[in-house]
């Protein structure tokens, strides 16, 4: 960190501050997306930027994702550093060709001769009854294909530091912001969405997980709202005599396996919690990494909690059933401890 002055900011303010500070330094950076202008981004990621930089650099777009995300690719190849917003990650379907076949592959196909310094920021996550087409995280869908760095920061400090790192990176970075962690006035304002953020610019690496609570009995690996759920489970776990170590992944691709292996070597037990679908998700990826490279650390079967391979249902009672929460984590951790 280069600055010791710290202020309390919401996730969205932390993100927009990172974008602002980088834009002041580099006039090749511009932002495109739906409602990023006057509105400041539906999830607040460009709050106040229109007033500071004007419509030439903060560009509201039509609802034409293939057009403007494809245009980011073309502009990046010309030396610009576009930040583009796909409002909800669920809307990926209309633009995935540009993302998967082009943004992610051009650097490789060109033998490293064409750079794609693009930040694709996108809102993820459910828990507020927005139903099947507006509630997904799709961490794994983006983590699966090579060619993109995929990050999913939880806390305001990391949202700012990883946004700065993403903007400075010469490669495409998919920057997943969790709606509930943005501290928006119209959503449930949870404590985790507000946190200390240094005023000056700083970097949080795009490939490092973080142990956010040390423990001795079981390692819980999570991201974003599942990290929050794991933290919410701490008291209940302690009541059950379980001292959990909690790892906030922060980076979906690559996964920081060293941090996970080191923790599992200590705790000997592993529970992975994901707000994405179970099959082929990061619960499977982390489990496979540990089973194949740190197998002898384990003293119990690996536990996985994730959406049970159904779309996210609308009705609250149904949605609560499919998204893992603190109670599920406590129950699963007990099961692992007793196995």
């Amino acid at each position: 960190m280069t600055d010791t002055k710290v202020q309390k900011l919401t996730g969205s303010k932390a993100m927009s501050l990172a974008i602002e500070q980088e834009m002041l330094k580099d006039d090749k950076i511009f932002v495109m997306g739906e409602d990023v202008g006057k509105y400041g981004g539906i999830f607040g990621s460009t709050t106040g930027l229109m007033d500071k930089f004007g419509p030439d650099r903060i560009m509201d777009t039509p609802i034409s994702e293939t057009g403007f995300i494809g245009a980011a690719i073309g502009a990046a190849a010309e030396g610009f550093r576009p930040i583009v917003e796909l409002m909800f990650v669920d809307f990926h379907g209309v633009v995935m060709d540009q993302i998967y076949n082009h943004m992610a592959k051009i650097t490789y196909m060109s033998g490293g001769n064409v750079k794609m310094p693009i930040v694709l920021m996108t809102g993820v996550g459910g828990g507020y009854s927005d139903a099947a087409q507006h509630s997904q995280t799709l961490y794994a869908s983006f983590g699966h294909l090579p060619g993109m760095k995929v990050v999913a920061p939880t806390f305001p400090h990391d949202l700012k530091g990883m946004m700065t790192a993403a903007i400075r990176d010469d490669n495409p970075v998919v920057f997943m912001l969790h709606k509930t962690l943005q501290g928006l006035g119209w959503m449930d304002q949870i404590p985790a969405s507000l946190g200390p953020v240094p005023e000056g610019d700083y970097i949080v690496p795009l490939n490092k997980a973080q142990v956010i609570k040390e423990g001795t009995d079981i390692t819980i690996v999570a991201a974003q709202m599942m990290t929050v759920a794991a933290m919410n489970a701490v008291a209940g776990l302690e009541k059950a005599g379980i001292n959990a170590e909690i790892i906030d992944l922060r980076s979906i691709k690559p996964i920081d396996k060293e941090t996970i292996f080191k923790s599992v070597a200590k705790t000997k037990k592993l529970l992975i919690v994901d707000e994405d679908y179970l099959s082929y998700g990061y619960t499977a990826e982390v489990a496979a990494l540990v089973a194949s490279e740190a197998f002898y650390s384990l003293e119990a079967p690996i536990g996985r909690l994730a959406i049970p391979d159904v779309p996210i249902p609308y009705s609250s009672v149904l949605e609560k059933y499919v998204i893992p929460d603190a109670n599920n984590i406590i129950a699963k951790a007990k099961e692992i401890m007793e196995s």
């Binding site: 507020y128 009854s129 927005d130 507006h134 006035g185 609308y314 609250s316």
Partner: peptide
């Protein structure tokens, strides 16, 4: 206001 609260939650 909390978008996820009440008998009719969501957008």
């Amino acid at each position: 206001f909390n978008i996820g609260a009440g008998p009719v939650p969501g957008e």
